[in-house]
Amino acid sequence: MLYINDLIKNYGSFTAVNHLSLHIPEGDLFGFVGPNGAGKTTTIRIVCGLLRASGGTVRIGNTAAAVGSKEMKRLIGYVPDFFGVYDNLKVREYMDLYGSMYGMYSRDIAKLTDDLLELVNLSDKKEVYVDTLSRGMKQRLCVARALLHNPSLLILDEPSSGLDPRARVEMKELLKNLHSMGKTIVISSHILSELSEMCNSIGIMNQGRLLTAGRIEDVMKQIAGGNRMRIQIASGMETAQRILKEQAGVKIESVRENEILILSNCTDQAVNAFIGLMIQNQVILTGFYKEEGSLETLFMQLTGGGAQ
Protein backbone atom coordinates (compact mmCIF):
# COMPACT_ATOMS: atom_id res chain seq x y z
CA MET A 1 0.00 0.00 0.00
CA LEU A 2 2.55 2.62 1.13
CA TYR A 3 6.00 2.52 -0.38
CA ILE A 4 8.63 4.91 0.94
CA ASN A 5 11.96 4.71 -0.77
CA ASP A 6 15.17 6.35 0.42
CA LEU A 7 13.35 9.34 1.92
CA ILE A 8 15.51 12.25 3.07
CA LYS A 9 14.55 15.50 4.73
CA ASN A 10 17.15 18.09 5.60
CA TYR A 11 16.64 21.32 7.54
CA GLY A 12 19.85 23.11 6.69
CA SER A 13 22.63 20.92 8.04
CA PHE A 14 20.23 18.93 10.26
CA THR A 15 18.90 15.69 8.80
CA ALA A 16 15.42 14.98 10.15
CA VAL A 17 14.81 11.90 8.01
CA ASN A 18 17.80 9.92 6.87
CA HIS A 19 17.41 7.52 3.92
CA LEU A 20 14.18 6.00 5.19
CA SER A 21 12.77 3.08 3.22
CA LEU A 22 9.57 1.39 4.28
CA HIS A 23 6.77 -0.70 2.85
CA ILE A 24 3.41 -0.97 4.61
CA PRO A 25 1.19 -3.68 3.11
CA GLU A 26 -2.51 -3.16 2.49
CA GLY A 27 -4.75 -3.78 5.50
CA ASP A 28 -1.95 -3.30 8.03
CA LEU A 29 -2.24 -1.29 11.21
CA PHE A 30 1.26 0.09 11.36
CA GLY A 31 2.69 1.77 14.45
CA PHE A 32 5.39 4.36 14.04
CA VAL A 33 7.45 4.53 17.21
CA GLY A 34 10.31 6.79 18.19
CA PRO A 35 11.42 9.34 20.75
CA ASN A 36 10.72 13.06 20.25
CA GLY A 37 12.60 14.38 17.25
CA ALA A 38 13.01 10.93 15.74
CA GLY A 39 11.46 12.08 12.46
CA LYS A 40 8.05 10.38 12.66
CA THR A 41 5.98 13.53 12.21
CA THR A 42 8.30 14.79 9.48
CA THR A 43 7.86 11.50 7.60
CA ILE A 44 4.08 11.65 8.02
CA ARG A 45 3.96 15.28 6.86
CA ILE A 46 5.98 14.41 3.75
CA VAL A 47 3.65 11.50 2.92
CA CYS A 48 0.60 13.77 3.40
CA GLY A 49 2.05 16.43 1.09
CA LEU A 50 2.58 18.98 3.86
CA LEU A 51 6.32 19.05 3.51
CA ARG A 52 8.67 18.77 0.57
CA ALA A 53 11.18 15.95 0.83
CA SER A 54 14.85 16.64 0.16
CA GLY A 55 15.12 13.29 -1.58
CA GLY A 56 13.50 9.92 -2.09
CA THR A 57 10.07 8.84 -3.27
CA VAL A 58 6.68 8.07 -1.76
CA ARG A 59 4.09 5.97 -3.54
CA ILE A 60 0.66 4.76 -2.52
CA GLY A 61 -0.73 1.61 -4.12
CA ASN A 62 -0.21 1.45 -7.84
CA THR A 63 -0.66 5.16 -8.46
CA ALA A 64 2.23 7.02 -10.00
CA ALA A 65 0.92 10.37 -8.70
CA ALA A 66 3.35 12.75 -7.06
CA VAL A 67 3.21 13.60 -3.38
CA GLY A 68 0.94 16.59 -2.84
CA SER A 69 -1.04 15.96 -6.03
CA LYS A 70 -4.84 15.76 -5.93
CA GLU A 71 -4.74 12.04 -6.83
CA MET A 72 -2.44 11.35 -3.89
CA LYS A 73 -4.50 13.50 -1.51
CA ARG A 74 -7.62 11.53 -2.38
CA LEU A 75 -5.87 8.36 -1.19
CA ILE A 76 -4.91 9.74 2.22
CA GLY A 77 -6.94 10.63 5.27
CA TYR A 78 -4.87 12.65 7.73
CA VAL A 79 -5.54 13.16 11.43
CA PRO A 80 -3.06 15.63 12.96
CA ASP A 81 -1.84 15.55 16.54
CA PHE A 82 -3.74 18.72 17.40
CA PHE A 83 -7.35 19.34 16.50
CA GLY A 84 -7.98 22.98 15.63
CA VAL A 85 -11.57 24.15 15.50
CA TYR A 86 -13.62 26.96 14.01
CA ASP A 87 -15.89 28.88 16.31
CA ASN A 88 -19.55 28.91 15.31
CA LEU A 89 -19.41 25.80 13.13
CA LYS A 90 -21.59 22.77 13.84
CA VAL A 91 -20.42 19.16 13.52
CA ARG A 92 -22.59 18.64 10.43
CA GLU A 93 -21.26 21.83 8.83
CA TYR A 94 -17.70 20.84 9.70
CA MET A 95 -18.15 17.57 7.83
CA ASP A 96 -19.82 19.40 4.94
CA LEU A 97 -16.91 21.86 4.71
CA TYR A 98 -14.26 19.16 4.38
CA GLY A 99 -16.41 17.01 2.12
CA SER A 100 -16.79 19.99 -0.22
CA MET A 101 -13.04 20.44 -0.16
CA TYR A 102 -12.75 16.94 -1.62
CA GLY A 103 -15.19 17.93 -4.36
CA MET A 104 -18.12 16.00 -2.90
CA TYR A 105 -21.72 17.18 -3.16
CA SER A 106 -23.63 18.22 -0.04
CA ARG A 107 -26.27 15.51 -0.48
CA ASP A 108 -23.62 12.76 -0.59
CA ILE A 109 -21.76 14.31 2.32
CA ALA A 110 -24.94 14.38 4.42
CA LYS A 111 -25.51 10.64 3.86
CA LEU A 112 -21.91 9.75 4.68
CA THR A 113 -21.85 12.07 7.68
CA ASP A 114 -24.65 10.10 9.34
CA ASP A 115 -22.80 6.80 8.88
CA LEU A 116 -19.44 8.14 9.95
CA LEU A 117 -20.77 9.93 13.02
CA GLU A 118 -22.40 6.66 14.03
CA LEU A 119 -19.09 4.87 13.52
CA VAL A 120 -17.26 7.30 15.80
CA ASN A 121 -20.16 7.37 18.24
CA LEU A 122 -21.06 11.02 17.71
CA SER A 123 -24.49 10.65 16.12
CA ASP A 124 -26.14 12.72 18.82
CA LYS A 125 -23.66 15.59 18.37
CA LYS A 126 -24.54 16.41 14.76
CA GLU A 127 -26.07 19.79 15.57
CA VAL A 128 -23.58 20.67 18.29
CA TYR A 129 -20.93 23.35 17.79
CA VAL A 130 -17.51 21.76 17.24
CA ASP A 131 -15.74 24.01 19.75
CA THR A 132 -17.97 22.73 22.56
CA LEU A 133 -16.93 19.07 22.09
CA SER A 134 -14.48 17.40 24.48
CA ARG A 135 -10.99 16.70 23.21
CA GLY A 136 -11.72 12.99 22.81
CA MET A 137 -14.85 13.76 20.80
CA LYS A 138 -12.97 16.23 18.64
CA GLN A 139 -10.33 13.61 17.92
CA ARG A 140 -13.00 11.08 16.92
CA LEU A 141 -14.70 13.71 14.78
CA CYS A 142 -11.36 14.33 13.11
CA VAL A 143 -11.13 10.61 12.29
CA ALA A 144 -14.65 10.74 10.81
CA ARG A 145 -13.62 13.78 8.77
CA ALA A 146 -10.52 11.97 7.51
CA LEU A 147 -12.67 9.03 6.38
CA LEU A 148 -15.20 11.18 4.53
CA HIS A 149 -13.62 10.75 1.10
CA ASN A 150 -13.02 7.02 1.71
CA PRO A 151 -9.21 7.13 1.62
CA SER A 152 -7.12 4.01 1.09
CA LEU A 153 -4.68 5.05 3.79
CA LEU A 154 -5.50 6.63 7.14
CA ILE A 155 -2.61 8.41 8.84
CA LEU A 156 -2.87 9.47 12.47
CA ASP A 157 -0.17 11.53 14.10
CA GLU A 158 -0.22 10.78 17.84
CA PRO A 159 -3.99 10.41 18.04
CA SER A 160 -3.98 9.71 21.77
CA SER A 161 -1.86 12.66 22.89
CA GLY A 162 -3.68 14.76 25.44
CA LEU A 163 -6.60 12.35 25.75
CA ASP A 164 -7.88 11.06 29.09
CA PRO A 165 -7.77 7.26 29.68
CA ARG A 166 -11.40 6.75 28.67
CA ALA A 167 -10.97 8.70 25.43
CA ARG A 168 -7.82 6.69 24.70
CA VAL A 169 -9.70 3.43 25.06
CA GLU A 170 -12.46 4.75 22.79
CA MET A 171 -9.92 5.84 20.22
CA LYS A 172 -8.17 2.47 20.38
CA GLU A 173 -11.45 0.63 19.88
CA LEU A 174 -12.30 2.88 16.95
CA LEU A 175 -8.98 2.17 15.27
CA LYS A 176 -9.28 -1.57 15.85
CA ASN A 177 -12.73 -1.37 14.34
CA LEU A 178 -11.42 0.43 11.26
CA HIS A 179 -8.60 -2.09 10.96
CA SER A 180 -11.09 -4.94 11.04
CA MET A 181 -12.92 -3.22 8.17
CA GLY A 182 -9.75 -3.57 6.11
CA LYS A 183 -8.42 0.00 6.27
CA THR A 184 -4.68 0.50 6.09
CA ILE A 185 -3.75 2.64 9.07
CA VAL A 186 -0.50 4.30 10.10
CA ILE A 187 -0.27 5.61 13.67
CA SER A 188 2.59 7.46 15.23
CA SER A 189 2.58 7.29 18.98
CA HIS A 190 4.64 7.40 22.12
CA ILE A 191 2.40 5.01 23.99
CA LEU A 192 4.10 1.72 23.26
CA SER A 193 1.77 -0.53 25.25
CA GLU A 194 -1.15 0.82 23.23
CA LEU A 195 0.65 0.25 19.93
CA SER A 196 1.69 -3.29 20.83
CA GLU A 197 -1.96 -4.12 21.59
CA MET A 198 -3.35 -2.54 18.43
CA CYS A 199 -0.79 -2.80 15.65
CA ASN A 200 0.16 -5.83 13.64
CA SER A 201 3.34 -4.19 12.36
CA ILE A 202 5.64 -1.50 13.66
CA GLY A 203 8.60 0.64 12.70
CA ILE A 204 11.03 2.11 15.19
CA MET A 205 12.73 5.38 14.32
CA ASN A 206 15.51 7.25 16.02
CA GLN A 207 17.44 10.31 14.89
CA GLY A 208 15.86 10.21 11.46
CA ARG A 209 16.72 6.57 10.81
CA LEU A 210 14.36 3.64 10.66
CA LEU A 211 16.01 1.16 13.01
CA THR A 212 13.67 -1.72 12.39
CA ALA A 213 10.29 -2.40 10.80
CA GLY A 214 8.08 -5.36 10.11
CA ARG A 215 5.41 -7.56 11.62
CA ILE A 216 5.34 -7.16 15.36
CA GLU A 217 6.25 -10.81 16.13
CA ASP A 218 9.23 -10.64 13.75
CA VAL A 219 10.45 -7.40 15.24
CA MET A 220 10.20 -8.80 18.76
CA LYS A 221 12.62 -11.58 17.81
CA GLN A 222 15.27 -8.93 17.41
CA ILE A 223 15.43 -8.20 21.13
CA ALA A 224 19.13 -8.36 21.97
CA GLY A 225 20.09 -11.68 23.55
CA GLY A 226 16.67 -13.13 22.87
CA ASN A 227 13.97 -13.90 25.42
CA ARG A 228 14.53 -13.88 29.13
CA MET A 229 14.02 -17.22 30.93
CA ARG A 230 13.86 -17.92 34.65
CA ILE A 231 14.95 -21.42 35.77
CA GLN A 232 14.26 -22.37 39.41
CA ILE A 233 16.45 -25.19 40.77
CA ALA A 234 16.13 -27.20 44.03
CA SER A 235 19.53 -28.96 43.72
CA GLY A 236 22.39 -29.29 41.18
CA MET A 237 22.97 -25.56 40.74
CA GLU A 238 26.61 -25.95 39.60
CA THR A 239 25.74 -28.65 37.05
CA ALA A 240 22.93 -26.53 35.69
CA GLN A 241 25.25 -23.52 35.28
CA ARG A 242 27.84 -25.68 33.52
CA ILE A 243 25.25 -27.04 31.08
CA LEU A 244 23.88 -23.56 30.34
CA LYS A 245 27.37 -22.13 29.71
CA GLU A 246 27.97 -24.88 27.14
CA GLN A 247 24.87 -23.89 25.14
CA ALA A 248 25.35 -21.62 22.17
CA GLY A 249 22.87 -18.70 22.17
CA VAL A 250 22.42 -18.76 25.94
CA LYS A 251 23.75 -16.06 28.21
CA ILE A 252 23.49 -16.27 32.00
CA GLU A 253 22.23 -12.90 33.20
CA SER A 254 22.16 -13.54 36.95
CA VAL A 255 22.41 -16.36 39.46
CA ARG A 256 20.55 -16.30 42.76
CA GLU A 257 20.24 -18.94 45.53
CA ASN A 258 17.71 -21.13 43.72
CA GLU A 259 17.27 -19.31 40.45
CA ILE A 260 19.18 -18.68 37.24
CA LEU A 261 18.10 -15.91 34.88
CA ILE A 262 19.18 -16.42 31.28
CA LEU A 263 18.80 -14.65 27.94
CA SER A 264 18.21 -17.10 25.14
CA ASN A 265 17.77 -16.81 21.45
CA CYS A 266 17.62 -20.59 21.00
CA THR A 267 14.83 -22.35 19.22
CA ASP A 268 12.19 -24.17 21.27
CA GLN A 269 13.83 -27.52 20.38
CA ALA A 270 17.21 -26.35 21.69
CA VAL A 271 15.57 -25.14 24.91
CA ASN A 272 13.87 -28.55 25.31
CA ALA A 273 17.25 -30.25 24.75
CA PHE A 274 19.17 -28.36 27.44
CA ILE A 275 16.33 -28.72 29.96
CA GLY A 276 16.33 -32.48 29.27
CA LEU A 277 20.12 -32.58 29.69
CA MET A 278 19.81 -30.90 33.09
CA ILE A 279 17.27 -33.50 34.23
CA GLN A 280 19.53 -36.33 32.97
CA ASN A 281 22.37 -34.85 35.03
CA GLN A 282 20.33 -35.03 38.28
CA VAL A 283 19.42 -31.32 38.32
CA ILE A 284 16.06 -30.97 40.11
CA LEU A 285 14.02 -28.23 38.43
CA THR A 286 11.14 -26.70 40.37
CA GLY A 287 10.17 -24.06 37.87
CA PHE A 288 10.78 -22.81 34.35
CA TYR A 289 9.33 -19.50 33.10
CA LYS A 290 9.70 -17.88 29.74
CA GLU A 291 9.26 -14.09 29.85
CA GLU A 292 7.83 -12.60 26.67
CA GLY A 293 9.88 -9.77 25.22
CA SER A 294 8.02 -6.46 25.26
CA LEU A 295 7.99 -3.60 22.82
CA GLU A 296 9.33 -1.40 25.59
CA THR A 297 12.39 -3.65 25.99
CA LEU A 298 13.07 -3.59 22.29
CA PHE A 299 12.50 0.14 22.08
CA MET A 300 14.87 0.84 24.97
CA GLN A 301 17.51 -1.41 23.44
CA LEU A 302 17.29 0.24 20.06
CA THR A 303 16.93 3.87 21.05
CA GLY A 304 18.30 4.08 24.52
CA GLY A 305 14.91 5.24 25.89
CA GLY A 306 12.68 8.21 25.20
CA ALA A 307 9.14 6.90 25.11
CA GLN A 308 6.52 5.96 27.65
Partner: peptide, 17 residues
Amino acid sequence: GEKERQTFDIMLTTCMS
Protein backbone atom coordinates in the same frame (compact mmCIF):
# COMPACT_ATOMS: atom_id res chain seq x y z
CA GLY B 1 -5.49 32.63 11.71
CA GLU B 2 -5.89 29.16 10.21
CA LYS B 3 -2.26 28.47 11.06
CA GLU B 4 -2.79 29.69 14.63
CA ARG B 5 -5.88 27.47 14.98
CA GLN B 6 -3.89 24.62 13.35
CA THR B 7 -6.63 24.02 10.80
CA PHE B 8 -4.51 25.02 7.84
CA ASP B 9 -2.64 21.71 7.59
CA ILE B 10 -5.90 19.81 7.28
CA MET B 11 -7.02 22.24 4.60
CA LEU B 12 -3.82 21.61 2.65
CA THR B 13 -4.31 17.85 2.75
CA THR B 14 -7.65 18.18 0.95
CA CYS B 15 -8.11 18.42 -2.81
CA MET B 16 -8.31 22.22 -2.75
CA SER B 17 -5.41 23.83 -4.55
